[in-house]
Amino acid sequence: MQIKLREIKKSFKVYKRPEGKWGLLKGAFMRNVTEVEALGGIGFDIAEGELVGYIGPNGAGKSTSVKVMSGILTPDSGECTILGKIPWKNRVEHVSKIGVVFGQRSQLWWDVPVADSFDVLKDIYAIPPGDYKIRLAELTATLGVEALLRIPVRQLSLGQRMRCELVAALLHRPKILFLDEPTIGLDAVSKLALRNFLKEENRKQGVTMLLTTHDMDDIEALCERVMVIGHGKLLYDGKLAGLQEKYAPEVVMKVNTDAMIAAMYNDLALT
């Protein structure tokens, strides 16, 4: 198993302001500290080359567990080995083998052309120059971002930037890719392009992917296996079809709205 989590627990301190008329003032001197459990002993296995959907309501602990797996957070207790290593103990070595895409954050340098950011990443990940050229050409061609390379990041649209973020995350040929809401805020055409790309990348390069999203069409289009998490615990792990049988047995057919809208955009030559 490439990713292995056992009984991972993590809780955070939350500072609350006292209630009432003088709460604001009181809060300046004494704070009510409460412990909030983000992960309550979660565990699962993911094999190489799998594309797993990771869903659950806001605050369920999805992002926290992704942060634990990418070595950013140290859990309070529990075991986790990824590619045979403990992420937070061998952080530098661990992160050179994974890629991350956070839909709400950017890993590109805001004020300089995209290509400059890629060059820096090349040096940070110590990618050999020859391999870098091949990989960059390959990724920019499939994602259609060759024309954007000389434009400063701040002037890209969200869809364009997201595609560049993906290039940035995959330049160093990571074995595992964590995607945290990669399609958030994207239009239908960009979403479909992104999905197709992820599917291809998973199939061709065998990259293991863990996809966190609230867009169920993403999950439906990409993931064979879904994991549902709530209150920091794993509630369901299996096929998406299994969920449908249980919770929506009468639904027979559904229009793929994204595909419909994308077709309209294309028809009107908007993209």
Binding site: F102, S106, Q107
Partner: peptide, 14 residues
């Protein structure tokens, strides 16, 4: 402040 420390920690560098 906004939590992008996370991204910085995903770089293989001290």
């Amino acid at each position: 402040n906004n939590g992008d420390v996370g991204i910085e920690l995903c770089r293989p560098m001290n």
